[in-house]
Design a protein around this nucleic acid. Structure first.
Lengths: 211, 211
DNA sequence: TCCTATATTGTACACTTGTCCTAATTTAGT
DNA sequence: ACTAAATTAGGACAAGTGTACAATATAGGA
């Protein structure tokens, strides 16, 4: 039962000041990544946004690689925690909980932070092994949560079927990132997508039968 | 009835040699983009892969921006042409044609070229206006094709409904890019996704009623 | 063959990148 | 106040970036 510990790659900050700095650095890095893209996410831009010097930045993060690791871990774990919160907070009727999760995920596309970050992550994980691992971990957890809900809705499903359904559901929603939400289509489209997705997924889950 | 002309941004090549060079440059650029990502898509890498010098490269493309334009236009128009070919080649029963298109799009995810290129494009279009326009043009055309098929399947649908359905279908498939196909999940998952997608989409199209 | 536009090379430039290093400043416990 | 560790600033570095340009080589019609 190994717990995946939240390990920081930054220099361990002993004074309070250092801890604040590290947070500021990661926040600044996230802003730059989201507002300007990974290509322009340079140490100097991050330092500028964080209000410190490059020298100070490299004191906490001796390499850009470690900074990127911490940044991705922080952002991704944020999404996972929020997801877990939604699952817990929703009622006890499986259908309702499923719909709550779907609607949360789709509503999240209204945040520019989301619609800009994930394509960067996907592109990054194409050629960055560590980014790929972190991304995989997050989606595995997301699919597991969705899979549980699916099995609660239709207990007759085999595990493999439920897993494939969860994968399909996850894909369908992630695919909206580039097209729906923050500054892309009209608001009505997002509402329409939500309705369509929920109805379509529930239909698919209920009517899928054992092999 | 304006025709969007396929305009090259490269220096017009008068000799045959020049035309061959431009093709080689774009092919090399595509390879580098797909194999190493946009960040490493440098003029020197492209020139190396194309077997020419940087000086020669900048003779045809005086700026990296124009090279990127031609590259994206070439790749995207390739996908659009292939898509149009599939639509034309499929039978005359609407359902069959729809399924053919869906299956083509999903099967295409078996090409690493596809699963690597599109995330790069999505990330690029986050902060590159021109990339965003080209991408939008392609997806608009794709959705129009899907929308036509949807209306053929269920003529009772209002245009807006059909458009939203097409958007949902397109999103669902694009979302698979990061998770299914070339070196991601097992082959069985892709087959399962194909089956699920077709059944689910057809169900959704048939049962959606007028507002 | 010769000649001119085309194609190609090699080099140079100004700029940005991540990383490194030393000196100065600040912190918090004694 | 003193001190040792932690933090910060500022500058330097080599490597890599896109771009510019003059010199050379090649193509293909006259």
């Amino acid at each position: 039962m190994q717990e995946k510990k939240q390990q920081r790659h930054a220099r361990p900050a002993t004074y309070g000041k250092g801890q604040v700095r590290i947070d500021a650095i990661l926040d600044a890095a996230a802003e730059v990544l989201i507002n300007q893209g990974y290509k322009k996410m340079t140490l100097r831009q991050i330092a500028l946004r964080a209000g410190i010097t490059v020298g100070n930045l490299t004191y906490y993060y001796p390499s850009k690689e470690t900074l990127l690791k911490d940044l991705l871990e922080k952002i991704l774990s944020g999404y996972l925690e929020e997801m877990a919160r939604i699952v817990k907070a929703s009622g006890h009727i499986p259908e309702d909980r499923f719909v709550a999760v779907i609607e949360y995920l789709i509503d999240d596309l209204n945040r520019q932070r989301t619609t800009r970050f994930f394509p960067e992550l996907w592109a990054l994980s194409n050629h960055d092994e560590h980014a790929a691992e972190l991304m995989e971990d997050m989606y595995v957890a997301e699919r597991r949560a969705i899979c549980d809900l699916i099995q609660a809705i239709n207990p007759n499903l085999e595990l493999q079927q439920a897993k494939h359904l969860a994968l399909f559901v996850s894909c369908s929603i992630e695919g909206m990132t580039m097209f729906v939400g923050a500054g892309k289509q009209q608001e009505s489209a997002l509402q329409s997508m939500k309705k369509m997705a929920c109805e379509s997924f529930l239909l698919l889950i209920r009517q899928t039968s054992q092999a």
